[in-house]
């Protein structure tokens, strides 16, 4: 076999590319990431359209800080409160992690509402993106459910009594109400059964559902594309985008080098 002589530079390139090619050949992952990164978005998208990824960032902060808190938190009525005190006062940077989780929840909820408001005002829920709006509304309710279940976990007075009333309010629902209350409480009263249940719902069930829904949400965003702002003179899908723009800058992104027309 006549092997071609490689220069040292080419050898280095070869060494770097080999594992990437290996991965690509077996998974197609590299091509997927390339597609994700270099897919085209309308040239006139603006800052309001960063709210979705900002919401994702807030969720990632919640997932990371929540995982760290789970290493120290003890979900039973005897130890829950003291473990929160331990996290806040003794664990290295525990106060920061807990504070970020506590306030990250509020930021996450605000961003979800703002993102939803943006999609509504841009009319971005219209054909063919109806399904993604529905997934988004489900994500919003899941986020609020995270807020409700997480509120009990510090097991202080506010947490306990807000949850007592919250569960009782669920119980007023016709037909299903009493069953929902029983399920949430893990019995007839709020006790160690309840806190374990809320903990499992808060850190396993709902986050699992949220992650699955986020994956679907992003899949649809990539498949269907991002909408142009409705006021844009060059909005994609109106035909006017084919006219050359007079000013150099359009929305967020500068015109790329590849311009026709």
């Amino acid at each position: 076999m006549a092997t071609q002589k490689l220069t040292p530079k080419e050898q280095v390139q070869e060494a770097i590319l080999y594992p990437i090619d290996w991965l690509e050949e077996r998974s197609g992952l590299v091509g997927g990431i390339k597609y994700f990164l270099f897919r085209r978005v309308p040239g006139d998208i603006n800052w309001f359209q960063t709210l979705g990824s900002a919401t994702l960032t807030a969720f990632i902060v919640q997932a990371l800080t929540g995982s760290i808190l789970a290493m120290y938190y003890k979900p039973d009525p005897q130890n829950a409160y003291s473990s929160i005190q331990h996290i806040t006062n003794d664990v290295f940077a525990g106060w920061l992690v807990r504070g970020m989780h506590r306030w990250g929840a509020s930021v996450f909820i605000i961003l979800m509402f703002m993102h939803m408001g943006r999609v509504f005002l841009f009319g971005a829920y219209k054909y063919p993106r109806e399904l993604n709006w529905i997934i988004g509304v489900l994500l919003l309710t899941m986020g609020l459910a995270e807020g409700f279940t997480g509120y009990l976990l510090p097991w202080d007075q506010t947490a306990y009594w807000a949850t007592v009333v919250g569960i009782n309010l669920n119980g007023t629902a016709p037909f299903l109400g009493p069953f929902i209350s029983q399920f949430l409480q893990g019995g007839t009263y709020i006790d160690d059964g309840t806190i374990a249940r809320f903990y499992a719902i808060h850190m396993l069930m709902i986050p699992g559902a949220i992650i699955a829904l986020i994956v679907l949400h992003l899949y649809l965003v990539i498949r269907l594309g991002v909408t142009s702002p409705p006021w844009s003179k060059e909005a994609a899908g109106t035909g006017s985008m084919l006219k050359p723009s007079r000013n150099g800058r359009r929305g967020l992104t500068r015109p790329g080098p590849r311009r026709k027309g």
Binding site: R40, V41, P42, G225, A236, T238, M241, L242
Partner: peptide, 8 residues
């Protein structure tokens, strides 16, 4: 339009 005029 996005294919023609969009940005990566």
């Amino acid at each position: 339009d996005v294919k023609e005029r969009g940005k990566p």
